[in-house]
Design a protein around this nucleic acid. Structure first.
Length: 373
DNA sequence: CTAGGGTTAG
């Protein structure tokens, strides 16, 4: 509503015999003029509370609070609110500590706000904060998280010379990751080769990034070659390296090879984790083998790897597909015990299946559990 | 959020 219309309204209402009604109507008109939804109000109070909280130095060390707030605001697309609370941080003396500044740059990255990350990076000297390869790497990482991949290669080309920053292994690994993410796995391999001419040896992170990209693109042969190169360079495979390979084998329909690889990991002193077992169980799900999936689920438990959201999200619907609602129910119980959330639709499907099979007691128990969460 | 991680691979 235009302000003229508003004035006209006010003029009308001022002749109203009841002043109380006048006030209410005027307020409503003001609301129409500048609508503030209850969601916006919530955001405003969240921002206010965050600033007040971080005004206390003690709370500036609560990384999780920062991250949770930024991620929440990002999810709601309140980017100006994120800018608001992170800009506010520049008021504190902590900003002179590069560690603190790096955290803020990374937070911009998590909110996919690469330009703001760069703005802060550019301002560091004027904020009396030292700027080294670490904040440079944080900026690169923020661009990767923002999926602004061109910016990564651009900055990597320009900044080191301009700012006399020597790129290190983390810088190179971040560029490798950016190239893999954009689908240029070959260029990423080239960068790995180039590192060596800068006297920086590829490490396990470099290999893991590239291996994962090769396996994801079903370039199994090249991945195997890379694995050999890694061994030749005496870079020790860790659990993530093996997990990439497990996923690759499973994608290549080589489930039994994958199972063997898990056993081999144990022998090599690399303890399989959730991702390892999930990768293998996915193989058995893909070929419709519930019995083997059950066997490995048990092994997973025995190895002290708590099943996670991915495990339950995969196995419960699979058990339903196989009409094994008792097992699906058992898994739901485990999920509650493990404090892992399961989609309501999945729980509903299990409950419906139980009812169809006249297992009303179980169905009721299940619904009760679901409601508790 | 409520302990605490300066940057990279889920």
């Amino acid at each position: 509503m235009s302000s003229t219309a508003f004035n006209r309204l006010r003029g009308l209402f001022s002749k109203s015999p009841s002043p109380i009604i006048t006030t209410i109507k005027a307020n409503r008109a003001a609301e129409i003029r500048a609508p503030i939804s209850s969601k916006d109000k919530k955001t405003l109070s969240l921002v206010k509370k965050f600033k007040e909280t971080t005004d206390n130095p003690r709370f500036r060390r609560y990384h999780h609070y920062y991250e949770a707030t930024v991620l929440r605001l990002a999810r709601e697309q309140h980017f100006s609110a994120i800018r608001d609370i992170l800009e506010h941080q520049k008021k504190y003396p902590d900003i002179m500590d590069q560690k603190f500044a790096v955290r803020l740059i990374c937070l911009y990255g998590k909110a996919k706000m690469a330009d703001d990350a760069q703005k802060l990076f550019d301002e560091l000297p004027s904020l009396n904060c030292e700027r080294t390869v670490v904040s440079f790497n944080a900026l690169l990482g923020a661009c990767v998280n923002s999926k602004n991949f061109n910016k990564v290669t651009e900055l990597f080309k320009e900044l080191p010379e301009k700012l006399s920053i020597e790129p290190d292994i983390v810088s190179y690994n971040t560029v490798v990751k950016a190239l893999c993410d954009v689908g240029s796995v070959d260029s990423a391999s080239v960068v790995m080769n180039e590192m060596e001419s800068s006297n920086i040896q590829p490490d396990v992170v470099t290999f893991n990034t590239l291996l994962d990209a090769f396996y994801k693109n079903n370039r199994i042969e090249e991945a195997e070659k890379l694995w050999c190169l890694m061994e030749k360079k005496n870079v020790l495979a860790n659990v993530r390296t093996y997990n990439s390979r497990l996923r690759g084998l499973v994608a290549d329909n080589r489930v039994s090879d994958a199972a063997e690889l898990i056993e081999e990991m144990g022998k090599k002193g690399v303890k399989p984790d959730n991702y390892s077992f999930n990768a293998l169980m996915k193989g058995f799900v893909d070929v419709g083998n519930l019995e083997e999936a059950k066997v490995w689920y048990k092994k997973m438990m025995r190895n002290g790897c708590g099943p996670d959201r991915a495990t339950f999200g995969m196995l419960i619907p699979f058990a339903c597909d196989k009409d094994d609602f008792d097992y699906a129910f058992e898994l739901c119980n485990d999920a509650v015990k493990a404090k892992q959330s399961v989609y309501n639709s999945v729980v509903q499907r299990v409950a419906d299946g139980l009812v169809e099979r006249s297992k009303n007691n179980e169905a009721q128990k299940l619904m009760k559990m679901a409601k508790l969460k």
